[in-house]
């Protein structure tokens, strides 16, 4: 169903305004302001401990903000008359009673909104859990738990999806499945807000990203925009006279680095400029390859000052 057919109160816009959360002396989320729009998958990126989960929990009213506010469809989530119909959520940790069967878990949630058993069974089929629907969720693998979490998120046919690390624990097939599913949901005009600490995953899924570090907003941009802003494209050059070439292309804003195998990486000059400089200097080129900066590099570049515990200091999160 396209977005324009939906009632205005289901605009699907998520808004956070100066959203803050303090845990004791630690400011987990620091005046975050952003808007998530329907129709595209929006990635919520940041290193572990950046405040992504806390932000999502505040959007859902599970954590009370220390400051600021958030709205979904123009109102606070707690004021919704049909919360599961407006927002479907998958939270970081499992939110399933281990002693209850998958089907009964969904039935209990569905009952609050008058959602029937037929829809429950459809969702179990959609996520591929029908064969274990009557088994206790305590015995589920991480991936099966994630699938059940997705089923509960979709139960109320929500306009907006808020998913915290949905690919966690999924096998490669499951990852492709969820990527396709989320893109399809966004294509139907829904709002899809997905957190991850893996840029590579987001690069394949999202067209817009909100990047946070240590609770603060670092970037809020389209994925292409982010790539071009944060990391520079380079050109890989190989030739017999590497040092002569390096001198020939050097100039304002151009950096040349040599790799151990003798190749040169030139940033700040296009392959055409390098080719002309080589011709002018009479150097024969063996290879001239433009190299696009990966989103991973872009992500590392913009979050490098915000990583809470990096591997050098030995901490892991």
């Amino acid at each position: 169903m396209p977005a324009r057919c939906r009632a205005a109160y289901r605009s699907g816009v998520i808004e956070a305004e100066a959203l803050s959360k303090r845990f004791g002396s630690k400011l987990a989320v620091d005046r975050l302001t952003f808007t998530v729009r329907p129709g595209v998958v929006t990635g919520f990126l940041g290193p572990n401990g950046a405040g992504k989960s806390t932000t999502m929990r505040m959007l859902l009213g599970l954590d009370r903000p220390t400051g600021g506010s958030s709205r979904v469809n123009g109102k606070r989530y707690v004021d919704s008359a049909a919360p599961l119909h407006e927002v479907g959520a998958l939270l970081e940790a499992r939110a399933i009673h281990s002693g209850r069967s998958a089907r009964n878990h969904l039935r209990a949630l569905a009952a609050t909104h008058g959602i029937g058993n037929r829809r429950v069974d459809e969702m179990l089929a959609l996520v591929g859990l029908e064969s274990v629907a009557r088994k206790r969720a305590g015995g589920f693998s991480l991936g099966m738990g994630q699938r059940l979490g997705i089923a509960s998120a979709l139960l109320g046919d929500p306009q907006t999806l808020i998913l915290d690390e949905p690919v966690n624990g999924l096998d490669p097939e499951g990852i492709v499945w969820i990527r396709t599913l989320l893109q399809r949901l966004a294509g139907e005009g829904r709002t899809v807000f997905v957190s991850s600490h893996l840029m590579s995953e987001m690069a394949l899924m999202a067209s817009h990203v909100i990047v946070v570090g240590q609770g603060r907003l670092i970037a809020d941009a389209g994925i292409e925009e982010l790539r071009s802003q944060a990391a520079r494209d380079t050109v890989l050059v190989r030739c017999a006279e590497a040092s002569r070439l390096a001198a020939a292309v050097s100039g304002e804003g151009v950096t040349v680095t040599a790799s151990p195998d003798g190749a040169l990486h030139v940033a700040g000059a296009s392959s055409a400029q390098i080719g002309r400089a080589a011709l002018a200097a009479g150097i024969a080129l063996e290879e001239l390859t433009p190299v696009r900066a990966s989103l991973e590099e872009a992500f590392m570049e913009i979050t490098k000052d915000f990583v809470e515990f990096d591997t050098v200091t030995g901490g892991t999160r």
């Binding site: 859902l60 009213g61 599970l62 989530y77 707690v78 919704s80 919360p83 599961l84 927002v87 959520a89 939270l91 940790a93 499992r94 939110a95 399933i96 009673h97 281990s98 002693g99 209850r100 878990h105 949630l109 609050t112 909104h113 509960s152």
Partner: peptide, 17 residues
């Protein structure tokens, strides 16, 4: 049992009041 398993988060997401 809802707190120890995390079920409470699902319950309160469905009934945020």
């Amino acid at each position: 049992g809802e707190y120890s398993t995390g079920m409470i988060r699902a319950s309160l997401t469905a009934v945020p009041r």
